[in-house]
Design a protein around this nucleic acid. Structure first.
Lengths: 145, 145
DNA sequence: GTGCTTGCAAACAGTTTGCAGATAG
DNA sequence: CTATCTGCAAACTGTTTGCAAGCAC
């Protein structure tokens, strides 16, 4: 995981460089994203933001997320049957490990993925440009119950 | 790929065994799914079904898909930013190769996936119960353009 | 002061549901 | 005959958009 403060500074710098305004709401949201490890949903970010800014709206969250997505600074994990989840700390595609029980999402080390992509590229003739790998499982905590 | 006729017979047998009614609409939809290689969307299935049954509705398509999903006989590929796609020929989770250009979806051979899952299970302590692997790329046809 | 951003509400798209009439078994 | 299925339309959910007022710069 990238150091949250470093990541926050990077995001603020990138926004400034593109002449985007650093409103208090936006700064707070960027901070949440820079610190995030738990791959929060938009609704979750909204409810955290609302603690500091009671009048804020979901639209603000979605608009800022859209902006950062377009800048390549957040990764959106789309779930068609559930809220989407966001990663503002590691914004590039990477594997996820999703607990089917508590919906916790973590980032596993997957050394073999590069080799796997190369294997598929050679066999299929496709030029691979990205991936989405979610492993579903039961986390150690949930196994205990 | 499973032989479409064999797959169709299997699906019909499973529906019959659970005392579900074999209406003409349902039979036609099951046939489309048994023959499908192109991972059709609900809208695509609906438009094909509509050729034979002009008064049919999307609800019928969705209800039959829900039934077959629940029976474990179709695989739903959820895309949060696009229509979901369905595989009624190979209904168990398997990797997909998605062309970012023409949205064609095919099934690559991925020998390494099992090893990869084992690697992650050992390192994380999770009990792996499933996966979703989509590789995004540009298919040979689209590369030519 | 300028024009990007906010926050409200309405729109949107894909999917699901309720229900009355049709129909497979 | 009767319980399930169909097909219409309305509801639902997460996300996006339009717009007037607010505020960063």
């Amino acid at each position: 995981m990238t150091d949250p403060q470093e990541r926050f500074d990077h995001l603020v710098a990138r926004l400034r460089e593109r002449d985007h305004r650093l409103t208090p709401q936006r700064i707070a949201l960027v901070r949440l994203l820079a610190e995030s490890q738990e791959h929060p949903s938009a609704a979750h970010l909204y409810s955290q933001l609302k603690e500091q800014f009671p009048t804020t709206s979901q639209a603000t969250v979605y608009k800022t997320l859209a902006l950062l997505k377009e800048m390549g600074e957040v990764l959106e994990l789309g779930f068609s049957d559930d809220d989407n989840r966001y990663d503002g700390n590691k914004p590039y595609p990477h594997p996820h490990l999703v607990c089917v029980c508590c919906r916790r999402i973590m980032d596993p080390e997957v050394a073999l993925l590069k080799t796997l992509e190369r294997e598929v590229a050679e066999l299929s003739g496709y030029q691979i440009v990205g991936h989405r790998l979610d492993l579903y499982g039961i986390c150690p905590d949930c196994q205990r119950e």
